[in-house]
Amino acid sequence: MKSDDQARREAKPAPTENVRLVVSDMDGTLLTPKKQVTPATLAAIGQLREAGVPVCLVSSRPPPGISMYFEALGLKTPYAGLNGAIVFDAEGRTVSSLALPQDALRDALDMLNVHGVDAWLFCGSDWIVGDVTGAYVQHEQAAIRVEPIVASEGFDPWLDKVGKLAGSSSDYDLLARLEGEIGALLEGRAHVARSSPYYLDITPEQATKGYALKQLAGMFGIAPHEVACLGDMRNDIAMFEVAGLSIAMGNATDEVASYAHVRTASNEDEGWARAIETYVLPRVAGAKGSSS
């Protein structure tokens, strides 16, 4: 009997033969485990630029945690933060902004609190925490270079403008279980997916990376089936399902990878650059090495 992963992979439509846009996740994908960009990745972005293929970033990060890499990457393209809850054009102007319904937000906060999971709110570029000494606060601050706002009297002042609620915990199994339980509780009201083993992201129902990919492609007049995307976590599955070419990183789980067309090396082994060279550039008309 076929496994669910095998059946899913075999049922997936064939990948596109024409790529005009690349949409990429950041952590675990474009960035190394030390949150760095390698020379090989920069060279691959340069090859795409020469071939006329834009690269857009879509991440669970808040906007400042994405734009901080633009200069190093040489990018000035539209991008999406908070898993698609906020989308910007190339000039940094907000194109789309979504907020969690307050009833869904309160239900999720109650669930996280019952299980002792630290809750964070993301409202545009603001990051609000209840406890600045939480286990992953310092880690997140180093990654996104945003100073958290401490909600010493509770989250109520922000509840009408939350683009993402994140639960953070060192109990990976607990977060995996809560992904299913909170997902069932909020079905039809919010999208629930882990963005790392230690982060559980809860966003507006429409705010997924699949939604973001469609928004970004639309700004260029490009259809989703002409987009290649790269990712590594469960929150990337939504864009794997709509892109014409979906590429899972080698560090992705087998389940996540089963939603993608192909799998590359890990983010510790130049997986992003290898994917561009092996799978994307041969599908770009006029690119060096293209079969078109």
Score class of each variant (00 low, 15 high):
residue 2 K to Y: 13
residue 2 K to L: 13
residue 4 D to E: 15
residue 5 D to H: 13
residue 7 A to Y: 06
residue 7 A to I: 10
residue 11 A to Y: 01
residue 13 P to S: 02
residue 14 A to C: 01
residue 14 A to P: 00
residue 16 T to E: 08
residue 16 T to F: 03
residue 17 E to N: 14
residue 19 V to N: 06
residue 20 R to Y: 00
residue 23 V to F: 02
residue 23 V to I: 14
residue 25 D to T: 10
residue 25 D to A: 08
residue 32 T to L: 07
residue 35 K to P: 00
residue 37 V to A: 07
residue 39 P to I: 06
residue 45 I to K: 13
residue 51 A to I: 02
residue 52 G to D: 11
residue 53 V to W: 02
residue 55 V to L: 15
residue 60 S to A: 15
residue 61 R to M: 07
residue 62 P to T: 02
residue 65 G to M: 00
residue 67 S to P: 00
residue 69 Y to Q: 11
residue 69 Y to D: 11
residue 69 Y to W: 14
residue 70 F to H: 15
residue 77 T to V: 02
residue 78 P to S: 12
residue 79 Y to A: 08
residue 80 A to G: 14
residue 80 A to I: 04
residue 81 G to Y: 04
residue 82 L to Q: 13
residue 86 I to L: 09
residue 90 A to N: 05
residue 92 G to P: 03
residue 94 T to S: 05
residue 95 V to K: 11
residue 99 A to S: 13
residue 99 A to P: 00
residue 100 L to T: 06
residue 101 P to V: 07
residue 110 D to K: 14
residue 112 L to H: 06
residue 113 N to Y: 07
residue 114 V to L: 14
residue 115 H to R: 09
residue 115 H to M: 06
residue 116 G to W: 01
residue 117 V to H: 08
residue 117 V to P: 03
residue 123 C to A: 14
residue 124 G to H: 08
residue 127 W to I: 06
residue 127 W to S: 05
residue 133 T to L: 11
residue 136 Y to H: 14
residue 136 Y to Q: 03
residue 138 Q to P: 00
residue 138 Q to L: 05
residue 140 E to D: 13
residue 144 I to S: 01
residue 144 I to L: 02
residue 145 R to W: 03
residue 151 A to P: 06
residue 156 D to R: 12
residue 158 W to L: 00
residue 159 L to T: 15
residue 164 K to R: 15
residue 168 S to A: 13
residue 170 S to Q: 08
residue 171 D to N: 14
residue 173 D to M: 04
residue 174 L to E: 08
residue 177 R to W: 03
residue 181 E to S: 12
residue 183 G to S: 09
residue 185 L to W: 09
residue 199 Y to T: 13
residue 201 D to W: 03
residue 202 I to S: 05
residue 202 I to M: 07
residue 208 T to K: 05
residue 209 K to A: 06
residue 209 K to G: 06
residue 210 G to E: 04
residue 210 G to R: 09
residue 212 A to S: 09
residue 212 A to I: 10
residue 212 A to K: 11
residue 214 K to Y: 01
residue 218 G to A: 13
residue 221 G to V: 08
residue 221 G to R: 07
residue 224 P to N: 06
residue 224 P to A: 12
residue 227 V to K: 11
residue 230 L to W: 07
residue 236 D to K: 09
residue 236 D to A: 06
residue 236 D to V: 05
residue 237 I to C: 05
residue 237 I to W: 02
residue 239 M to P: 04
residue 240 F to E: 01
residue 244 G to S: 02
residue 245 L to M: 10
residue 248 A to V: 10
residue 251 N to A: 00
residue 252 A to F: 06
residue 253 T to Q: 00
residue 257 A to P: 01
residue 258 S to H: 07
residue 259 Y to C: 11
residue 260 A to H: 08
residue 269 D to M: 04
residue 273 A to V: 13
residue 275 A to V: 12
residue 276 I to Y: 02
residue 280 V to E: 01
residue 283 R to S: 05
residue 285 A to F: 09
residue 285 A to Y: 10
residue 285 A to W: 11
residue 286 G to Q: 12
residue 287 A to C: 10
residue 290 S to E: 01
residue 290 S to C: 03
residue 290 S to K: 09
residue 292 S to T: 10
